[in-house]
């Protein structure tokens, strides 16, 4: 499989650190599945991504463009719930899709992406642009599981006008290689964007997560929070940037990456970056990675829980608040998926 550089930092650091981008496997989706929509009446064929849509890399953007393409328009002041189920099974182990979502003034879209499938090899390339007009609300929940042989690349970009709000919540449980590339522009006064990511990665899984939000509007707000557990020889890279552009007075942003490393062989690289050319802003960044605190495990065991149960509770307690942010229809499956993953990887390192 050929390799492709993805998720390049917007402000590169020293080359010898080898963190400016990642070189990961790439393949074109050959036998793509179709997305099944809960209500296709909002979809029209064809999608033109904005010119500044970056994607994880040009090749991945092209891969997404090789598949189905739709524009989804949510008319002003309407409230809509949409769900897309994509099953990548042995017959159609791949997926490719490009989407443009237009959420008009005062409208609200709750969108659920559900990815399921078997363990066979496959490729998924998705590119989605979200355009939010004034006062629009978007809540996107995405969960993938059971795709242990897959190469998954999710690329998105969101642009929010005044008073608009976009929340993205993603659960990554499967995928041999998972690439996430998310870009946001908070342009209008008071626009808000939240990115929440949770994961449980084991074996030799690789997660490469990229988030970048530009604040240009006044009093805008962003929050990027990623939490999860790594076991086996799993590796995760977190690249996150909040950029306070000139003129975004009163903006607030925070980014945080919190990882539990259940096995000393796991790797966690965290790059939370804050850029700023405006004075009157507030930005926070945080990162923590480490093994489970033995004192916490002991405390839980003193209440009769086995060591494995105690470790599971610690991991679950870390990501549970993010699971609760997912659409209700996904929560139980995701929680069960996390538990299954921890059980499969369980025991002492």
């Amino acid at each position: 499989m050929e390799l492709e550089k993805v998720n390049r930092l917007p402000m590169p650091t020293w080359r010898y650190l080898k963190t400016n981008d990642s070189q990961l496997p790439f393949a074109m989706p050959a036998r793509p599945a179709k997305a099944v929509w809960s209500d296709a009446s909002y979809l029209t064929a064809g999608a033109a991504l904005p010119e500044n849509f970056e994607g994880a890399s040009p090749a991945w953007k092209d891969a997404a463009a090789s598949g189905e393409a739709y524009t989804v328009r949510i008319p002003a002041d309407e409230k809509v719930l949409l769900r897309a189920d994509i099953v990548m099974d042995a017959a159609s182990p791949d997926y490719a899709g490009t989407y443009v979502f237009r959420v008009e003034k005062g409208a609200e879209l709750r969108l659920v992406w559900s990815w399921k499938g078997g363990g066979e090899a496959g490729v998924c390339a998705l590119a989605a642009a979200y355009e939010l007009e004034e006062g629009a609300v978007l809540h996107v929940s995405a969960a993938e599981e059971g795709l242990s042989g897959k190469l998954l690349c999710t690329q998105r970009a969101a642009r929010a006008a005044a008073g608009a709000r976009a929340d993205f919540v993603s659960a990554d449980l499967g995928g041999q290689t998972v690439i996430t590339h998310s870009r946001g522009w908070l342009e209008g006064k008071g626009a808000v964007m939240h990115e929440y990511g949770l994961y449980a990665a084991g074996g030799r899984q690789v997660l490469d997560l990229f988030y970048h939000i530009d604040h240009t509007g006044e009093e805008t707000e962003s929050d990027i929070e990623v939490k999860g557990a790594l076991s086996g020889e799993a590796k995760k890279v977190f690249r996150s940037t909040i950029d306070f552009k000139r003129g975004c007075s009163g903006a607030e942003g925070s980014e945080g990456d919190y990882a539990i490393q259940l096995d000393p062989r796991t790797k966690n690289i965290s790059l939370p970056l804050l850029l700023c050319t405006e004075d009157n802003v507030s930005g926070n960044h945080a990162s923590s990675a480490g093994q489970i605190d033995p004192g916490t495990v002991y405390y839980l065991m003193s209440r009769g829980l086995t060591k494995e149960e105690a470790r599971r509770i610690v991991v679950e307690s870390l990501i549970r608040p993010l699971i609760d942010r997912l659409d209700e229809s996904l929560r139980e499956d995701v929680l069960a998926g996390v538990r299954a993953k921890l059980d499969a990887e369980g025991g002492e390192p």
């Binding site: 004192g295 916490t296 405390y299 065991m301 003193s302 086995t306 060591k307 105690a310 509770i313 549970r320």
Partner: peptide, 23 residues
């Protein structure tokens, strides 16, 4: 192990109890 002692009927009230957000 500690959990087995707890199941036998031992209990320790900690001087500095641990907090666990999320449960």
């Amino acid at each position: 192990s500690t959990d087995k002692r707890a199941r036998l009927g031992l209990f320790l009230s900690f001087q500095a109890p641990i907090s666990v957000a999320g449960i």
